[in-house]
Amino acid sequence: MHMSHRISAFQCSPIRRLSPYARDAVNRGIKVYHLNIGQPDIKTPRQVIEAVHNYDESIIAYGNSEGRQELREALPDYYAKYGLNVDAEDILITTGGSEALQFAFMTLCDPYDEIIIPEPYYTNVSSFAHSAMVDLVPVTSTMEESFSLPDISEFEKRISRKTGAILLCSPNNPTGYVYTKDELLQLLNLCKQYDIFLIVDEVYREFCYDGKEFTSVLSFEEFSDRVICVDSFSKRYSMCGARIGALVSKNKEVLENALKLSQARLCPPDIEQVAALAALNTDDSYLREVTIEYEKRRDFIVDALQKIDGVKVSNPKGAFYLVAELPVDDAESFATFMLRDFDLNEETVMLAPCEDFYVTKGLGHRQVRIAYVLNTDDLKRAVACIEAGLAAYQSTHR
């Protein structure tokens, strides 16, 4: 039978597509350290779990398409901690940050319009773009430049009558780069000049290291009519499975039109919104301690990887990912080998090959994204597997 051209253009996620090999390894008695996916081992705040346990509605009913009012009214106090002026009416609750991105694409773009994006980028954005029939136009950032924002002229070259927006993720997934106030301002001026939008995925805003200051796109009030912020509870409070996010904008036309999409899917999940509301009551010390922990993990794994012969690694300033370049011809072949053909004392690792984190064909084929979401003891064992695995792979793939 014939499948649609649209679905044929989708790629299987490089974060998850090697999962069958990982399951087979587990069935063989191999412990797999999952460095492929941003699933923290940090405990979810206790009151979040308790809120789910204490959910006492007699009917799990449809809710408001824009999200629970009490959650939308609570979020401005959270943003105020970062000096951001956000009202409940500026917020649309979504089913994770993923849906917020899809809503932004479909609200701003017609089929075959374009979104400009620095690469490497969060690979699932490709699927969101295909769903909206939007083309991604890449501007390449490099490890040699620490994945900083390419020169603004490179963005301007790619603007056409089809351009709907520029999309950033800051702190960045997969590179860990944190865009500066000056970089954001350059992009905002460009967006104003060409009358397009700037969308910024800020789901990792708490996780900045080395004293790096985070600047939210929402802080530029003079550009608020062309700004969309994508947010999520998933990583911040280690509640990835709850799938609660938000689309935030001062542009009322954007929100009114995105609400049409919200109404089409009826409402975001109700119980998870109750959990999200409880998460906002988390003591500030939780996020401070989690950030310190991630910085410690970052320091450990960057140092450990740099000691492996032939490995090049970026030094992320935020989020909990890094990009590593390996001394192999093909990172996906190596990642498959690690799961299918290798173990070190009945342990191995799962990595995310980076080739599909790029739009430009041929880039990233020797790179992997590593999520340092495990404790340092597990990271130590995982790095030992990588080092031994590289030696074994090189000896059999000459």
Rank of each mutant, 00 (worst) to 15 (best):
S153C: 12
F147S: 09
D356S: 13
A275L: 12
A51L: 02
V230W: 12
K192E: 07
R46M: 13
G97A: 09
V373L: 05
E183V: 06
V178S: 06
F105V: 07
V248W: 06
E213A: 14
R298F: 00
L305D: 00
M338G: 00
Q367I: 00
F320C: 02
S216E: 05
N189L: 06
K81L: 01
C208A: 09
E222D: 03
N173D: 14
F105G: 05
A384Y: 03
R398Q: 14
Y179S: 09
E213M: 13
Y62L: 15
D283K: 15
V217Q: 13
V230H: 14
R158Y: 01
I370R: 08
S285N: 07
E183W: 10
L344V: 08
I15C: 14
E347K: 12
V230I: 15
D90Y: 10
R236S: 08
N54S: 07
A384L: 10
P76N: 02
L185H: 11
G389K: 01
L266E: 10
E89C: 13
K31W: 08
R340T: 01
T180R: 09
C385I: 03
S8G: 07
A382K: 05
V248P: 05
S65P: 14
S131V: 10
V137T: 15
G97T: 00
L92V: 04
F357C: 13
L187A: 02
Q102S: 08
S160H: 04
P174W: 01
T175I: 04
R68W: 04
G97C: 04
A242F: 01
Q306N: 14
R381L: 07
R288E: 04
Q39C: 12
S127M: 07
G364W: 00
D182K: 15
K260G: 09
L190N: 00
Q306D: 09
I166V: 13
Q193Y: 02
A319Q: 06
K81P: 03
K192D: 08
G241D: 09
G38R: 03
